[in-house]
Design a protein around this nucleic acid. Structure first.
Lengths: 132, 132
DNA sequence: TTATTTGTATTATAAATTATAATACAAATA
DNA sequence: TATTTGTATTATAATTTATAATACAAATAA
């Protein structure tokens, strides 16, 4: 998967990398069970510090999106558990986004259509190397 | 309107204040045409520095949510113009939120229902001091 | 076994961001 | 005229972000 970082952005590099990996899983670029590059390899590939990659992998592990095993490396998990924390995070972020959209004149039906299309574009049920 | 800041949060105070004002407009707590407290008054009310409030008002002005006139102070604008920048911001944030939700097992229909309910809860067409 | 690779930890450093503080000033208002 | 307004400037401190250089035990590969 291709990672593109914007060092001029106000969004920290570690957040950009975290988001792009999550989006990669959602799009199906990163399949369930698939291994991520080692922290050193990823750091070299995208030209950032090893510790920044470690930070991202730790975040993704804590969020339940990947699992890290010393024997098998970092791998994409089948399904992440929905915690109360994450549920609240999603709801508050969505409420803000909807308020902003509405204030900007985006109508309910248009917004719902956008959401539906984005959902249909996802490909998260695939498994690396064929079916289970 | 009541502003609640969490200094323990990792979200900067100026972002918290900006978001709460936007949500206040969306909920109808802050009505169109209504004036915001002066930067000094707001700073005193919520116990933060005057320059931090200035920063927030400037952001809200640049985003088109309020207008600042030396003669009439800061006021909520009727409708904010949807720029390309804001449109892209909303789309990328929504895409990330939908991907995260899907990976956490939230299904499309449930997500759409949440969105619809949040839209219905908004009250942005009200005007301060009666109709126009 | 030995050498290498792995994730992880530690310490140090630098730059950028965030927040406060103390003033200052011109425009507008009372 | 005196006060209030948004805005600007400068300084300072704390926190966050990112890099750098090592180190180490566990696992793997030779």
């Amino acid at each position: 998967m291709i990672i593109k970082l914007n060092t001029a952005s106000s969004t920290p590099i570690y957040v950009q990398l975290r988001n792009q990996i999550v989006m990669g899983i959602g799009r199906g670029d990163l399949k369930i069970g698939q291994g991520l590059p080692t922290v050193r390899q990823m750091a070299e590939d995208i030209g950032i510090n090893m510790m920044t990659v470690t930070k991202v992998y730790t975040i993704l592990k804590n969020e339940g999106f990947i699992e890290i095993d010393r024997r098998h490396g970092a791998k994409i998990k089948p399904t992440a558990l929905l915690t109360d924390n994450f549920s609240e995070k999603i709801e508050s972020e969505l409420a803000l986004l909807i308020t902003e959209s509405s204030l900007k004149g985006i109508e309910k039906e248009h917004f719902l259509k956008m959401c539906a299309e984005m959902f249909d574009r996802l490909n998260i049920s695939q498994v690396a190397g064929g079916n289970i």
